[in-house]
Design a protein around this nucleic acid. Structure first.
Length: 978
RNA sequence: GCGCUUGUGGCGGAAUUGGUAGACGCGCCAGACUUAGGAUCUGGUAUCUCCGAUGUGCAGGUUCGAGUCCUGUCAGGCGCACCA
């Protein structure tokens, strides 16, 4: 009987659907396990072999956990809102929903062929109103909240209003955009509009006038993580900084919790590090500097408080509001010219070349430690968005200040003993402080740092600054608030309308506000977002209701927010929705949330490190504060699957001809390498006829073949893309080898976390293995045909017995008479695999598991094993990797239930006991040789036996035994000394 | 510049707490069967001057023993980057 994977896979995929094998429900009698993949954006290109890598890895883990008796949630859905569908719509006029749904169908079809255990009953799509109702809802909750710094959590905004009414901003310690000061009386005197504006300073979702990344090419603003090297990630259009009114999320309020949370989750060190960098916590001090001959002062931020005595000038960011104040009449022209120059430079230019530029403002600041007047400069190397937008420059110990000082001939005062600053600055935070204060000048204040280490000096200065009222200790974060609105069509509409110019939330019971139909997807001519084109709005109905309820002129039409939400809105809490996807009353019910808790294993690419993985942690923390999510961190363990790169093939055309020369013959010709479709190349050998048929211009192509008469192609590793003809489609692999082979091979390729090029060349090995396995399992018909159940019990593998038998299959000594038991050798091979596979799957080391499986099968084939228990156990061990084949074998073994609910085999150490142990005798670190010993040998016996053996005794002559090391099951070491 | 990470045959990659480096697969070589095939099976395959010696990017160190631990160094990949 042949291994007919096509029939087997088709049959079982159907059965799984019919029998709802992968539908799960909360079951308090079983422990839960939540496995999740980052849901895909359904692009028009369909899946390539790289996509399923993570899905297969997590599918194996999910199946493994289910076999171990867990109630496993493994859902899938689509991140359906996004720019590509919209860009396509603009070009073709096709509604993005139409193309998105087509793409989703295609994805589903491709996914179904690979045999995943997803519970499709729980599918979510971010673009469906039932789903985005809760995205809108969460936004409203954020609007209605502020962040209390003291209790480090979100609180209802009403509490803040109470505070204002009682004491204004006194004793206020909350996350805010600007540091406002007002009294309770002032607050009470303000009208509704003013109050609304002030509250925006504190809301977690707020409307703010901020510098944004404006992308004219896409007609929208972008978040920081959507911009790389000054151009948009999507499309590569230039991005400029612009001040605009936008909705924002106060992600920065959660900076410390986002940082602390990293310690509690099992993510890779590199992703944690990336997030730490992105959050960018830096401890320092804010110090106030008075402007000479003025009542004004300003504050700078520094992490090097120890260098106060080395300040020789001050620098302001060109965008700083202080610039106007400090510019003197004589310098005005020069400053204006400089500001104009800076404004003319794009973000990209500023990033690429770090030119030393700047202008003197004409004013001086008084250094509170030395009393000296330090000139105030203006330069683009100081960023307006970080710290206070002003710095004290210490050229001796900061390379940027150093470059500036050298360029403009400003003094440099070294502060660390032995530091040579004649050529470059000494930036290291090490050494003994000197010149603080200098010995040649009269001390201005009674404070010295001389003789301290840098660390001590920083602490000492901070303490002094605080006590003397010169400033305060301050922690700064690089993390900025997320800009949450987009001027696009294909996204969630905001549940917001404008009442007399005041942004107002649409009542919760009216949610969701559905995305309206529009004729044109481009922004309107007036620059309004595409939603301005809407002719029929769900909003109209809602507006009517609001107007009726509020006793105002019922002809009033309030304008609705025309912006839409960004891509990360819908993907920030989808994992919660999977727990309870059909709930119309809540994002997730309390019961479901408490049962499933959070994601135990999250699998996805590392490219989301500073986007989705930050936003969803933020979002979840907010929902945690609200009491909606019972866990503070959404993803307990994260595995980043590597990228599958393409392996391109090349043919070599001899210049100005239509003749192609084989790779191994091409030296000596002047050739042009041309990408060739990898699908007409096999093991780097070109299918010449297929090549001729590939494109009309190659119809008449001629070939210079190698000595074996083959055309060998060259190859290179590149990104998998249509234009390089190196896209390998999983459907083709499934068609040729079967889903089980594809699954096995993708895992056998190497560690899941590692990026690697796709290379179809090795797939035969995996397919061969499955064929061998099939042959082995079906070799002796009588052992495979349905036999009497063992022990006279019913089908032992039924799910009912699962809870009662946590130890798994009864393996030995329970054979009914006439049936052959398993030999010790068979059991040893089997249990070696059980041990290895159980440990390896837990560690995501799938390639080694497969290797062990191959070894085990070889062993059992050699032993001509026909034991039923061997076959049953092997089938269960196969089930996570090759579910179709495992089901078929399980069925052939006479079971009527699915192999998914079989109990994972228990490992028994006894079968692995070695008869003997190898001994290494080492002396003087050089000579050694192996010698066999009984496994349970004692140290004394080992020594005796070594002396009894003529060969080892010879080695040991003239030496004394220093120590005997017994490594059970491994080796014995007798260390000799003279 | 800072941080993280990886360096092992012709190739992808194995190697528990330090314990016979190169599992497993691909490729290659030889053989068997053969309806002569890109099928199946068996054996071999790190390198060299093939007795024996050398081998995990390079140079040292600790140890009876190092791919593994320590120090330095080189190279690739990723992230952040005028963040004070």
């Amino acid at each position: 009987m042949e291994y007919n994977f096509r029939d087997i896979e088709k049959k079982w995929q159907q059965r799984w659907v019919e029998e709802k094998t992968y539908q799960v429900a909360e079951d308090k009698s079983k422990p839960k396990f939540y496995v999740l993949n980052m849901f895909p954006y359904p692009s028009g290109a369909g899946l390539h072999v790289g996509h399923p890598l993570g899905y297969i890895a997590s599918d194996i883990y999910a199946r493994f956990k289910r076999l171990q008796g867990y109630n496993v949630l493994n859902p899938m859905g689509y991140d359906a809102y996004g720019l590509p569908a919209e860009q396509y719509a603009i070009q073709t006029g096709q509604h993005p929903e139409k193309t998105t749904f087509q793409n989703i169908d295609r994805y589903r079809e491709q996914l179904d062929k690979i045999g995943f255990c997803f519970d499709w009953n729980r599918e979510v799509r971010t673009c469906s109103p039932e789903y985005y109702k809760w995205t809108q809802w969460a936004f409203q909750k954020m609007f209605g909240s502020f962040f209390c710094n003291k209790c480090q959590s979100a609180q209802p905004i009403e509490k803040l209003i109470e505070h204002f009414e009682e004491k204004g901003t006194e004793d206020l310690d909350v996350a805010q955009t600007e540091n406002l000061t007002f009294t309770a009386d002032e607050w009470k005197s303000w009208d509704e509009k003013k109050k609304s504006d002030v509250l925006m300073n504190y809301r977690i979702a707020f409307m703010g006038e901020t510098m944004v990344n404006w992308c004219a090419g896409l007609g929208t603003v972008l978040a920081n993580d959507e911009v790389v090297d000054g151009v948009s990630v999507r499309g590569g259009f230039p991005v400029e900084q612009k001040k605009m009114r936008q909705w924002c999320l106060r992600v920065s309020a959660y900076a410390q919790r986002l940082l602390d949370g990293l310690e509690t989750i099992q993510w890779s060190e590199s992703i944690k590090e990336t997030q730490k960098n992105w959050i960018g916590r830096s401890e320092g001090a804010e110090v106030e500097f008075k402007i000479a001959d003025s009542d004004e002062s300003f504050t700078i931020f520094t992490t090097r408080a120890d260098t106060m005595f080395g300040v020789t000038f001050m620098v302001l960011a060109p965008e700083s509001e202080l610039v106007e104040k400090v510019t003197t009449a004589e310098q005005k022209a020069a400053v204006d010219e400089y500001i104009k120059y800076v404004k003319g430079r794009t973000e990209r230019e500023r990033m690429i070349d770090h030119k030393v530029t700047g202008v003197f403002s004409g004013s001086y600041a008084i250094n509170p430690f030395t009393g000296e007047k330090n000139p105030i400069w203006i330069s683009e190397y100081v960023l307006a968005g970080y710290g206070t937008g002003a710095i004290m420059a210490v050229p001796a110990h900061d390379s940027r200040d150093y470059a500036f000082a050298k360029h403009f001939n400003l003094p440099i005062i070294p502060l660390i003993e032995g530091a040579d600053v004649s050529e470059e600055s000494y930036d290291a935070k090490e050494g003994i402080v000197t010149n603080s204060p200098r010995k040649d000048v009269k001390p201005y204040i009674d404070f010295s740092l001389n003789g301290c280490t840098v660390k001590e000096a920083i602490a000492k200065t901070k303490k002094y600054v605080k006590e003397a009222g010169l400033g305060r200790v301050k922690v700064n974060y690089r993390l900025r608030d997320a800009i949450f609105s987009r001027q696009r069509y294909w996204g969630e509409p905001f549940p917001v309308y404008y009442k007399n110019g005041i942004p107002t939330m649409i009542p919760e019971e009216c949610l969701p506000i559905e995305l309206p139909e529009v004729d044109k997807f481009l922004p309107t001519e007036t620059g309004e977002p595409p939603l301005g084109n809407a002719t029929v709005w769900a909003w109209d109905e809602v507006n009517k209701k609001i107007v009726e309820n509020s006793k105002i002129d019922n002809k009033t039409v309030f304008p609705i927010e025309l912006y839409t939400m960004p891509g990360f809105a819908g993907s920030s809490a989808y994992y919660l929705r999977y727990m309870d996807p059909h709930n119309n009353e809540a994002l997730v019910s309390k019961d479901a949330d408490e049962y499933w808790q959070n994601v135990d294993l999250y699998v996805g690419g590392s490219e989301h490190a500073t986007g989705h993985l930050i936003y969803s942690r933020f979002w979840n923390k907010f929902l945690f504060d609200l009491g909606v999510s019972c866990k503070e961190e959404p993803f307990q363990k994260l595995i980043n699957q590597g990228m599958i790169q393409g392996r391109s093939n090349f043919v070599y055309r001899i210049k100005d001809t239509n003749t192609f020369v084989s790779f191994d013959k091409k030296d000596g010709y002047d050739v042009t390498p041309i990408h060739v479709d990898v699908n007409i190349v096999s093991a780097d050998v070109l299918d010449v006829e297929a090549f001729k048929a590939w494109r009309p211009e190659y119809n008449t192509a001629e070939f210079i073949l190698n000595d074996e008469g083959k055309y060998i192609c060259g190859w290179a590793v590149e990104k998998m893309s249509k234009s390089m003809f190196n896209v390998v489609n999983p459907d083709m692999i499934v068609e040729k080898f079967g889903a089980d082979t594809l699954r096995l091979y993708e895992m056998f390729l190497g560690p899941v976390e590692q990026s690697k090029p796709w290379d179809t060349n090795g797939i035969d090995g995996c397919h061969r293995f499955l064929k061998k396995l099939w042959k082995f399992m079906t070799a002796e018909k009588e052992t495979l045909s349905p036999t009497l159940p063992r022990n006279g019990e019913g089908d032992h593998a039924g799910s009912a017995s699962l809870g009662n038998k946590p130890d798994g299959l009864p393996i030995t000594g329970e054979m009914s008479e006439g049936q052959r038991g398993s030999s010790p050798q068979e059991l040893k091979a089997l249990h070696t695999l059980i041990k290895k596979e159980t440990a390896d799957i837990e560690a995501f080391s799938y390639n080694t598991t497969i290797a062990a499986f191959m070894v085990c099968l070889n062993e059992l084939t050699k032993l001509k094993s026909t034991s039923r228990e061997v076959k049953e156990t092997l089938t269960i061990l196969l089930a996570p990797f090759c579910p179709h084949l495992a089901e078929e074998l399980w069925h052939l073994l006479g079971h009527t239930t699915t192999v998914c609910d079989a109990p994972w085999p228990a490992f028994n150490e006894d079968y692995l006991k070695e008869d003997s142990v190898k001994m290494m005798v080492a002396f003087n670190g050089k000579a050694r040789f192996p010698l066999e010993f009984p496994a349970d040998v004692s140290k004394e016996d080992a020594e005796k036996a070594a002396l009894a053996n003529p060969q080892s005794a010879k080695w040991m002559e003239g030496f004394t035994v220093a120590k005997v090391i017994v490594v059970p099951g491994k080796m014995i070491n007798i260390v000799l000394k003279k």
